[in-house]
Design a protein around this nucleic acid. Structure first.
Lengths: 218, 218, 218, 218
DNA sequence: TATGAATGAGCCTTCATTCAT
DNA sequence: AATGAATGAAGGCTCATTCAT
């Protein structure tokens, strides 16, 4: 494998594990069995390497697991929601997600939390369209298709659940080991999120938010 | 304010913003208008400071917003779930959360993602009991109280939504600015999560998981 | 024991072991079960403490083991040389040497090697007279009492042997464990040095240095 | 001269003068006209530099002045002892000693006094064989070749004198300036030690230690 | 007399980067 | 395309000292 690719693979894992700042180019270079200076040669600087890895990750991720299966367009919204969620789980947690390099899910989750300048572009190119798709699926499941706010809120609830599995696996391991995401139970977890969210959407649609008596602030 | 307290306040914010590694004690000391050596004097080293802040954060957070309001015991499970979720939002996102020091929510969220050795103790003391409480509330809402797995899965879905707001505000700001958590809309967001989750729990309870035809892996 | 004395005792040992620079007042304070600031209070600064300990060490050492036993004046030069050497061993290596605090011999030896400003005064007050006494003993053993150079050279040879035992005990332990100076074999070691030196003096006196054919420089 | 070598030369001198702890890599780097980080690059850390210098010093020292001149084997033990002592003086005090770098004699002397972990290896590789050679020379000068204890004691007396000159030059300067070791009087000093020691060995051999009436402890 | 708190200076080390090859 | 050598900046930590009590 050429040096450049070896570096990118190692970088994806290490950036994901340690974060941009804590990761060192020396650690990456060692893991890639390359010279430290090679990184600067190929990617100009640390930031350049990070950018390259991030872009590569998203591009490969959405290429490998596109948000909408092509054949899904003629299916009902329920099935499309289910597919959408499964794909998200696969992108984040599958061994083949995000370019087939393990550890890259963490890289993404980290950008959600503390975005680098590199993220702006990613949001525009990948995330916004992806979100739109989810919102439109939810709209199809809703009687009042015009209530964008409700749909958006539901979208966030769904994404939140998915990301939590990629994001908080250390704590899940501690408080609910059976739900640690593994290659084996990915489908089961995704199906739970799917069902839970389906119920959630219906509940939101059936409730007039103003009917909730205001809770005394704690 | 005494130096020690000033340091802890500054540290909470900066550790939350930058993470343990990227945060520098110089930056903290400057923000606290204290000498760098004072940190060493009061907390032994950077790690000691971090530990102190983390412990203080949890202790203050659960003291200020205990998971169960005292008067809640005689209320129904729905109301208790609602309180539970609101309290979580307040703990993570209120100006008065986690000891009244802004920025500490991020500190916590970060520990979920990449726990430091300090976290082990926190999990045991605070998080596990907190999770137990949520599970038991869900159990009351479920006909089959013995199905611990379903309850645990629902608990994770609920916590995931809450944490996502504390965790992913940068991306929420970009794709759904109206849902950026602020002091003003905290209650509204919490109520959405409450309703969504109520629907989710019911759906999970009403569905036999085996009825879902297995999705072809994408 | 008053704080000041406790500090001096601890300081003697630690300065001897670690040297002036490497010794820290914190280590001394801890060993003395005193506050760090107490050192500055009693001795003004680190250097002041060192000076006090050094002066105290010499004064106590020569008080406890004066170079000439009072009753020795009527003895022959051989016996006086023997006493002189024994006293030196005791001063340097006995548990009761240098004020009865162990470790102070190292303190002295160190000053021989890298004298601090404090040493100038010590040389004048204690060491020069001490050396004069040794030279005059050697003179009595020499036929040509006027050859000060020979006597001085012999004095250095004698002192060198004595100091080596106090100075190089770590290496002696490694290459000749039986000759490690202990409380038990102090007299035996001193007697060896005495005999060896007696022979040395006689040889020097009996040889005309010019008779040695010049060695080709290696 | 390459940076690495410049650093080692500067380090030898400064470590010798100040000791390991008190020496600073900044001072060394400045003296070597190199960057502080270069030390880390070439020697990993301060300790690594020290180790390298120490090893280099001994290796070069014994290479330049091997303990036994090749042609000495057919000479008598007296001449061999004389050579041995001269070589020691040259190694410790000659400008060309210890690799031709001034100040390294102090480095060695310091290790005798307070050995660092690095010294263990040096003792084994260089010092023990060196001592063995001296002992065997002394044995040849002794009628009772089996009395190893006497020979060892004499060896220590000889080494003690030599080391004292390398070790205690500051005090020699004060109490006997004429005997300060310089490049000019090295041979003269060595010859004195040789003669003195010759007499010492003979005296030790001729005296039954038990004939000495036990000295009353002072 | 003695101490806890706080400080400024300095040290070792690490890091990303550059340069000559 | 790739590397070993070297650098400047910055970071965590330690230390002797001072000050208010």
């Amino acid at each position: 494998m050429p040096t450049k690719k070896r570096i990118m693979n190692a970088a994806g894992e290490i950036f994901g594990q340690d974060g941009f700042k804590a990761a060192t180019i020396r650690k990456i270079a060692t893991a890639a069995q390359a010279n430290v200076a090679a990184i600067n040669y190929h990617f100009r600087d640390k930031q350049g390497l990070y950018l390259a890895v991030l872009e590569d990750t998203f591009s490969k991720g959405f290429q490998r697991f596109p948000a909408d299966g092509e054949t899904d367009n003629d299916k009902g919204p329920e099935q499309r929601l289910r597919t959408f969620i499964h794909k998200m789980f696969y992108r984040f947690l599958s061994n083949e997600g995000w370019g087939g390099i393990s550890g890259r899910g963490k890289l993404i989750a980290r950008e959600f939390f503390e975005p680098t300048p590199a993220f702006e572009n990613i949001v525009e190119t990948y995330i916004t369209p992806h979100k739109q798709m989810l919102v439109s699926i939810i709209a199809e499941l809703s009687p009042d298709k015009a209530d964008k706010d409700k749909q958006l809120a539901c979208a966030i609830s769904i994404i939140g659940q998915c990301v939590y599995y990629a994001f908080a696996s250390p704590i899940i391991k501690r408080i609910a080991p059976a739900f640690m995401p593994t290659q084996q139970n990915l489908d089961r977890l995704a199906d739970h999120v799917f069902l839970f969210s389906l119920g959630g959407i219906q509940q939101i649609n059936n409730t007039d938010i103003t009917t909730i008596d205001i809770l005394e602030t704690p």
